[in-house]
Amino acid sequence: MLQGFKNFIMRGNVVELAVAVVIGGAFGAIVTALVDHLINPLIGAFVPSGNLESWVITFPGLFDEVNFGIGGIISAVINFLAIALVVYLVLVMPMNKLAERRAARAGVVEEAPAPTQEELLIQIRDLLAKQQA
């Protein structure tokens, strides 16, 4: 049982996943700090309260006023989009380029997708018109 667990832990995928989670958490903290301390204050300059997080929309309720924290929601969306953009630019794009280079070195060429039925009919029509001319 211990040998099976050791084999499971020592597999490359598990170790790589653990490293990715740790680095992703640290990277997320950096991007969150950037958004909280740079981007949100810039947006907060255009918000009446001056702070995006404290921006609320107040509606009259049955007994009391109801506050919707729209600023917190906008801040969370901006934070998510910033993290997604940075992950795409730093990780996804370089990995895609690397995969393309490896495929080119290996001589693997992506096949063109099969033509649709409409495209085939257009080609047949054009060939028939060329033969008649």
Score class of each variant (00 low, 15 high):
49 S>K: 11
69 G>Q: 07
14 V>N: 00
68 F>M: 11
47 V>R: 09
126 D>S: 14
84 A>I: 11
51 N>L: 10
127 L>G: 07
80 F>L: 12
10 M>P: 04
101 R>L: 00
100 E>M: 07
27 F>T: 02
115 P>I: 04
4 G>S: 13
57 I>H: 06
22 V>Q: 01
121 L>A: 15
74 I>T: 02
94 P>H: 07
43 I>P: 00
45 A>V: 10
74 I>D: 02
51 N>I: 09
35 V>L: 06
4 G>P: 07
57 I>C: 09
34 L>V: 05
39 I>R: 06
92 V>S: 15
130 K>V: 04
122 I>H: 10
102 R>H: 02
7 N>T: 09
18 A>P: 01
5 F>Y: 05
44 G>W: 04
89 L>S: 14
26 A>E: 03
65 E>I: 04
109 V>A: 14
40 N>P: 04
81 L>W: 12
47 V>G: 13
16 E>D: 06
7 N>V: 03
14 V>L: 05
33 A>I: 07
6 K>Q: 00
114 A>L: 15
2 L>P: 02
19 V>M: 06
28 G>D: 06
22 V>A: 09
62 L>R: 12
99 A>Y: 14
60 P>W: 10
121 L>D: 15
109 V>N: 06
7 N>S: 01
74 I>C: 07
98 L>E: 15
34 L>S: 09
23 I>K: 08
19 V>D: 01
117 Q>C: 09
97 K>I: 13
79 N>L: 01
41 P>E: 00
29 A>T: 12
125 R>G: 13
81 L>R: 13
2 L>H: 03
50 G>V: 09
5 F>G: 03
64 D>Y: 03
44 G>F: 10
23 I>S: 14
46 F>I: 11
17 L>C: 02
50 G>I: 07
12 G>K: 04
78 I>H: 11
27 F>W: 08
14 V>R: 06
58 T>E: 13
107 G>T: 05
16 E>I: 02
133 A>P: 00
30 I>F: 08
104 A>D: 01
22 V>Y: 02
42 L>G: 05
47 V>C: 13
110 E>A: 15
105 R>H: 11
100 E>T: 07
86 V>P: 09
40 N>I: 05
21 V>A: 00
